[in-house]
């Protein structure tokens, strides 16, 4: 019944020409306006040629693709205005492949639009609701099954089954246990400790206090990071223990997180943002502000690393430093608080 077709202009619904469902006035279908290719055989032949040309060009493009793939070395670079310097093999194969596919698509659509019939067809919708009797039959089937199973009456079976089903996912969850260790105190600890040398981030050289320029910034890590050979542990510790070392005029220091935690205006702070853990990297030496590039949290290093702007809620942890007998920077102690982003157990 849903195959009815009305290419004519008969309106649907009631005699008054209203849609029986929505009550909207129904207008007859607009008359079909023939296309040029419908009435002019020349136009139809032209369209046919165009479609065939597109399909044929597509085949040529595939040949071009194979030739380009084989013949152009993957190392050849060419410079093209606007695009810049690119890999010639990439560009040629991409162009040929893309055009080959695109031409099939455009050809098929052109064919459909110009040469296939464009008279709109009407099809009736079928009801999306079953008849009431059918619904009743489903309900009675269900009731019959329910009665036959005895699910309602046999309480002891029902309850024990529900209990068993409730417990059945437990192994599925327990089996995930060894995905990783329990948090423990990991997030609270870094490998910084008393007397640990500060070494530069890239070349692992000890930092002489007299070599830190006024207004300068040095990325540093603890010297014992070098001793951690286990790759994973090394990465994890680097993610927590990275610090920045800055030097400012001691007169500019408004406050610190502890007394004499600086050494002659040299201050060390955690590099890991207290918001979501990005390494902070932008330091404005005049304002002593440290900016995190991820969400623009801004910390004032001259004032205990307090947050002056942005979504971070906690100040940047400061590392107390001093120098050893040879004048190299060392830590007075480890961090006195967890570094990095917050967590539930942090307190």
């Amino acid at each position: 019944m849903n195959e009815l077709e009305h290419p004519t202009s008969e309106p649907y619904g009631s005699k008054e020409g209203k849609d029986l469902v929505s009550g909207i006035t129904i207008f007859p279908m607009e008359p079909h306006v023939p296309r040029k290719s419908d009435i002019d055989p020349k136009a139809a032949r032209r369209a046919e040629r165009q479609v065939a040309t597109m399909f044929a060009t597509s085949s040529l493009m595939i040949i071009l693709f194979v030739v380009a793939y084989v013949k152009i070395p993957n190392t050849t670079l060419i410079t093209i205005p606007v695009i810049g310097t690119v890999n010639a093999n990439h560009l040629a194969t991409g162009f040929a492949f893309g055009m080959a596919i695109l031409l099939i698509g455009i050809g098929a659509i052109h064919w459909a639009k110009k040469l296939m019939p464009d008279v709109e067809v009407t099809q009736e919708r079928h009801a999306l609701t079953s008849r009431e009797e059918e619904r009743q039959e489903v309900a009675s089937s269900f009731q019959r099954g329910k009665a036959e199973s005895g699910f309602a009456e046999r309480k002891i079976i029902r309850r024990s089954l529900l209990g068993a089903l409730a417990l059945f996912p437990v192994p599925l969850i327990v089996l995930l246990r060894d995905l990783g260790p329990l948090p423990g105190t990991r997030l609270r600890e870094t490998i910084w400790e008393k007397g640990m040398h500060l070494v530069t981030d890239a070349t692992y050289r000890k930092i002489k206090a007299s070599d830190v320029p006024l207004g300068g910034l040095i990325n540093a890590v603890p010297e014992n990071l070098l001793e951690i050979e286990h790759e994973e542990e090394n990465l994890n510790q680097r993610g927590k223990a990275s610090i920045i070392v800055v030097r400012m005029d001691p007169a500019d220091i408004v406050s610190q997180q502890g007394e004499n935690w600086d050494y002659q205006g040299i201050l060390a702070f955690s590099k890991i943002c207290t918001h979501l853990g990005c390494p902070t990297s932008l330091y404005q030496q005049r304002s002593h502000h440290l900016l995190c590039p991820c969400h623009q949290s801004t910390f004032d290093l001259s004032d205990s690393g307090n947050v002056v702007f942005g979504p971070a809620a906690r100040r940047m942890p400061q590392l107390a430093i001093t120098v050893d007998s040879e004048g190299y920077l060392i830590a007075q102690s480890g961090f006195d608080q967890p570094v990095g982003p917050s967590f539930w157990e942090r307190g």
Binding site: H6, V21, I24, F27, P28, M29
Partner: peptide
């Protein structure tokens, strides 16, 4: 024109 709640054109 010709489109109703109960057909597809």
């Amino acid at each position: 024109p010709g489109r109703t709640e109960s057909n597809v054109v």
